[in-house]
Design a protein around this nucleic acid. Sequence first.
RNA 1: GCGCCCGUAGCUCAGCUGGAUAGAGCAUCGGCCUUCUAAGCCGAGGGUCGUGGGUUCGAGUCCCGCCGGGCGCACCA
Length: 601
Amino acid sequence: MKSQVRAVINATLDALKAKGLIAFAQLPNYSVEVPKQAEHGDWSCNVAMVMSKAVGKKPPELAELIISNLADASGLITSISKAGPGFLNLKLKDSAFQQVALDVLKAGESWGRAAPQSTGKKVMVEFVSANPTGPVHIGHARGTFMGDAIARLMDAAGHEVTREFYINDFGNQVDTLGRTVFKRYQQLFGVKVELAEGEYPADYVIDIAKTWKAEVGDAYLNQPESAWLPKAKAVAIRENLNAIKATLAKANIAHDVFFSEASLHDSGKVRAIVDVYKDRGVTYEAAEGRRREKGDKVRDAESKAAQYADRQKGGTFLMTATYQENGKYVLKDEEDRVILRHDGTPVYLTADLAYHKEKFDRGFDLAVDVFGADHAGHVPRIQSGMKLLGYDETRLKFVLVQMVRILRGGEEVKLSKRSGNVYELADLIEDAGADVCRFIFLMKTANAQFDFDLDDVKRQSKDNPVFYFQYGHARCASILKKAEEKGTRFVGATALTPAQLARLVLPEEKAMLKKMSLLGEVVASAAEKLEPHHVLYYCQELIADFHSYYTQYKSDPIISDDAEKTQGRLALVAALKQTLKSAFAILGISAPEYMESPPEE
RNA sequence: GCGCCCGUAGCUCAGCUGGAUAGAGCAUCGGCCUUCUAAGCCGAGGGUCGUGGGUUCGAGUCCCGCCGGGCGCACCA
């Protein structure tokens, strides 16, 4: 509907240009919006204000020109007026609204979605990427749901999407995990060993040791570390990944690819990327990384840099900060970063650079990384690293998910891995339900922190906003079902007659149809911005409109003795149901056909 | 000290590339079930959009300073 309005405006502008009344090189980037005030018409347009300067006419004057020369061959616009500082307020013929219901019903499940893979773009969304040293906990929850929703959005926007999980199965942490597993394994045979500081005390490690014992018996009990460590690690990673996958499945999330960091080392790609950088002349050997700004590093004595200063012995540095083009710094990092330690071993960053190179080499047009805000410092390094390889860094985007404070009865819940007491995502889903969890984390933008109270989530079952949404869909389903019971089954889009459709004339009905017509645009915009919450707020508005309409017209109900009007209104209900179902699918929440009334308190 | 993010109703948060009288949910108060589910609807109160400047026809939105909060500034992953 909006595009029809736009077409008329564009045609008018072209006509004005042809008549020599105005001059412009290109059609301007103006907006056609739903006005906040209903009295302002069905749509409003700011084109006269936007073009004002370029054409050298005052907004009201230009607005008058457009109105008096409107090129509306099909009679779409029934009224157009100038208002305020130069807005154009438009009203459209009823059939333009009614057509939306048909459009929705004909599109069915694809309503609101671009044709699958129609953009021809390959998009990777990397999310979760929790260390395989333990279960997914609620600290991961926000990024997990956010990443999945972004992937769903990208898919709906017509991209070919790959969901990927980067497994940090290399380095100290998994080695420590392997050693912990071995100690637990020894304990199962009665060997007296104590866990050291930094090892993993949680019970799941004991379970892993039991599994291992069941598989290999005492085969590794008296072997040297070089023999048992790889095995213990492998078992631990395998078991943890299985647990992670099971948790994600409960959250209705399935990754397409689990990409192993260790495999990058094994295949030599980590070494290879160092050589690439060396060949490009963007590395140097030094004891300390150079900084872009002159002057001493200002670091708190408490900082980890100071704490671990003795580990920083120098090595090969990548010019993530000091690389210059035409005598100017072009990268954002503040200090060059080590990619090989003094002993020649690569660091985490080195592998991650190799991984991101891999993303580009695998042909992704866009790679989205969903990170926790505590990894924000990592972003400029990867961006710099990709630019130093000559890649277009705009093909890489980061969504930084801010911290969530988890409260229980007003008290903050600390996520302590040390004690082994973690509140797992699986527990949260068990307690609150997958839809509720997902909804809570998608309700807000990623880049704002928020608090959420576990008690509220559980107790709130009745007032929880997700039920409001789902009830909107269930109410549509219920009405359609009721119509069937009363013998006035909705005839469907193809059998619907123009006369039936023409009975949709109420302002509330037209407002809903207008809003429904916008789903595709909302999805496209949310996908572009990597912000799923726009879809959610869109649903909220649509559902509120519907509940209000439903209540307001109880005395003039949807299902009435007037068969023609009933069919028209059922078309609206069916279209709304489909619109909500499509939107819910993009968010990943379920669209129930029926909901029980909640138990009375 | 430096960098990134945030500051909008009592609370939790929306506010699209700057647009007309700043919104929703929760909470509070007052109404609405013999009709298609009251997990709903209607109404009321509640705001110097942290603060001070600037940019322009027009600023919650853009720029700068300041105040307050979070995260980061290890060759750990």
